[in-house]
Simulated assay, not measured.
Amino acid sequence: MEEENLISKKELLKVTGISYGQLYRWKRKKLIPEEWFIKRSSFTGQETFFPRKEILDRVEKIKNFKDDVSLDELASIFSPNLSKVILKESDISSHNIVSQPTFTLYKDVHKESSEFNFNELLFMTIVDRFLKSGKVSLGEAKLVLDTLEKNYEKFYGRYCDVVLIRKLGVAVCFLMLIPNEVYVETEAMLVLKINAGECVEQLKSKLTL
């Protein structure tokens, strides 16, 4: 993850006005995912960073809601039991999960599927971002889907980036653990890099509306 997409713990506490104690209490209560606490080496030793957009949005939501509901109730909103999530085809549209072209693409691959668990919905969400970028073809979107289905579980819940590169018209997709930096050879082009963690949070927010 690029430096501009990260915020240090020191800067986070200063910008949001929360205390060290609050931050780690919210972590214990599972209001802030463990995966967002990113350890990196610095000239002072080791420092903790967070994905900037996600943590700032989350802290703002917690501060807005915490006077109206308990921290445990907030935890059930921000960290729902994803293993129980099952949607039918009709729910995909009513929850505005993904666009119709993305769902059609998924159904082309999984013709017999009529119910979808959280990971399947997440894969659709990620593929949807690739398609909506206008930078990838339907064939490349299917490559992204295939890569996710074969490899995502290897990350054991840790956040990763989904990366698509293209060289001489041939696309390659792979997953990279966050934090990371991507360098490609001069004849290859980085088409798009999608943060799977952002897609997880986007999907959870839709499912809890």
Rank of each mutant, 00 (worst) to 15 (best):
E140C: 05
A141D: 04
A141Y: 11
A141R: 11
A141Q: 11
A141W: 09
K142I: 01
K142N: 02
L143G: 06
L143W: 01
L143E: 12
L143C: 06
L143N: 09
V144K: 04
V144G: 02
V144D: 03
V144N: 04
L145D: 07
L145C: 08
D146Q: 13
D146S: 15
T147M: 08
L148T: 04
L148E: 02
L148A: 09
E149L: 08
E149Y: 07
E149C: 07
E149T: 09
E149N: 15
E149I: 03
K150E: 13
K150T: 10
K150R: 15
K150F: 04
N151I: 04
N151P: 06
Y152C: 05
E153T: 10
E153H: 12
E153Q: 11
E153A: 10
E153V: 08
K154F: 06
K154Q: 11
F155I: 01
Y156L: 14
Y156S: 13
G157M: 04
G157R: 05
G157W: 08
G157Y: 12
R158Q: 12
Y159P: 05
C160F: 10
C160T: 04
C160E: 04
C160W: 00
D161W: 03
D161T: 13
V162I: 13
V163F: 05
V163H: 05
V163E: 10
V163C: 14
V163K: 08
V163M: 06
I165L: 12
I165T: 15
I165Y: 02
R166V: 02
R166P: 13
K167T: 14
K167Y: 09
K167M: 10
K167H: 08
L168N: 15
L168H: 14
L168A: 13
L168S: 14
L168R: 15
G169Y: 01
V170N: 09
V170H: 04
A171S: 15
A171H: 10
A171T: 12
